[in-house]
Design a protein around this nucleic acid. Sequence first.
RNA 1: CGGCGAUUAGCGCAGUUUGGUAGCGCACUUGGUUUGGGUCCAAGGGGUCGCAGGUUCAAAUCCUGCAUCGCCGACCA
Length: 574
Amino acid sequence: MRTSQYILATLKETPSDAEIISHQLMLRAGMIRKLASGLYTWLPSGLKVLRKVEQVVREEMNKAGAIEMLMPVIQPADLWQESGRWEQFGPELLRINDRHNRPFALGPTHEEVITDFVRKEISSYKQLPLTLYQVQTKVRDEVRPRFGVMRAREFTMKDAYSFHLTEECLAQTYQRMHQAYCNIFERLGLDYRPVIADTGSIGGSVSHEFHVLAESGEDAIAFSTESDYAANIEKAEALAPTEARPEPSKELNTFATPEAKTIADLKAQHGVKPHRGVKTLIVYGAPDENEQRGLVALILRGDHELNELKAEKHPLVDSPLEMAKEEDIFAAIGARPGSLGPVGLKMPIIVDRSAAVMADFVAGANKDGEHYSGINWDRDVAEYDVFDLRNVVEGDPSPCGKGTLQIKRGIEVGHIFQLGTKYSEAMNAGVLGENGKNQIMTMGCYGVGVSRIVAAAIEQNNDDYGIKWPTALAPFELAIVPMNMHKSHRIPDIAERLYSEFTAAGIDVLFDDRKERPGVMFNDMELLGVPFTLVIGERNLDNNQVELKNRRTGEKLMLDIDQAVAAITAQIRG
RNA sequence: CGGCGAUUAGCGCAGUUUGGUAGCGCACUUGGUUUGGGUCCAAGGGGUCGCAGGUUCAAAUCCUGCAUCGCCGACCA
């Protein structure tokens, strides 16, 4: 490719609405342009990278025994009604009507379509197990699209679905997919981790997420220092403290706290250390037989954070979890958030394991502007339930029993699930078993955020000059940059010759044939992140040499012109 | 969906307080100059100032409504 016949589209300035580095660099390197919020056009360079990711994903999926197909983006509503997700999915499911006013959805995922396909097409246990996949555009009407293609409303995803007769068979395929995913991220040159995950709205039992580690990641991941245990923080268990609860040593006392509404205020105004107090969060309880929701108090140590996913697993708590409105709290307790506590509270009280081993602690007195000190469980609060409610923090003991937890941020680029029969049962997808009886299939599903990987790779591979692509992802393998081509005959002759030789050798080469100053060309090639740049200049031509620059290492290598093509091809392919 | 902010040329911004008929840098076009790290000089093209309404002799500027975009929160692969 010649730059003069290409859309390089690099920008000197950073568009003001790009927050994270990958979004900025994708715009500046001419990879994407925004059409509307969460909707992006992929320019030639961006598309080349996207295709490279797809290719690696395809190869590893095929190797793992999955078969590629392609399903429509537009899906009839009745399939979604059949699975129950037409109502359940919420506004993220973008719905449209056709000219006959028939309802459709733009597919955010394809469990319904694939299950419908398989139930019609597969009728015998002999055809199982079966793993099908596609690489396709997904649509999700995100509440808040952000970070460019990282969280877009339209994005490219590889989604695979497996069908089995038994749980054991599913577990085997799940393991193969797990390995295939590791292979994919390994080949893409990314620093990644598989982590134990929650199944969320997709459903199912066992689930792992694959995270690319990056500061800008939207998820927190907990790792053990001593084992390979890793879990999404929302799923990491906070073990009960091993130390016993100290005996009460102080009397219950009230003190006035007119200006203290938060844990931070208590510390600043009254010297109460956060880990010596508790916070009391009021949420709605699970509906009773009359569909009425009461209130439930959740108690955590002052320096801990509520994990909503854990809280809603408690039978007394409504799911999804909802914080009580201030007026409901005031009506029930007679005090407002900021002065709440467990003493004398007339509602179910659920205490986090770490808060349950505290003694002589501080909490609100359920009277505006007043707190208690010297509170002790059992003595001052008779009835309560102990439960794991909080997010783990750095230094907590690992749930695996070995080492302590470390917390890092990650970008979710893959997610695999053992679905079980959630969809196959709802949609009556069965096959005839060996015994001649109909048997509902067991399913797994496996997603890779293909477009998100492009952004995630940049988050992990950049410097002040731009992108530093891992070899497997670079939009071009080599750039040829001639110095002041129009001023000599030698330079263009050699550049043209090398360009055609590299092309013939099958190297994907970008020939910068613009009439630009050297600095402009260097900057553009570095911004775009081409791994190798071949510099052709008068200076070295007298010695019959050209210079090869390595984008990642910064190394410069002088090569004899006659050996350049062979040497560089070997280096790129090697 | 709640809170905050923005919207002026392809991009980054000034001008709005105090109303007087739109500007700077980059990019683009032409000519010259320069040439191993974003040259310099000159000339040029490009804007219904987000949209609609109102106030006024006069609105980018003041008022009202709406839209879009972004940030924080809630929510979510």
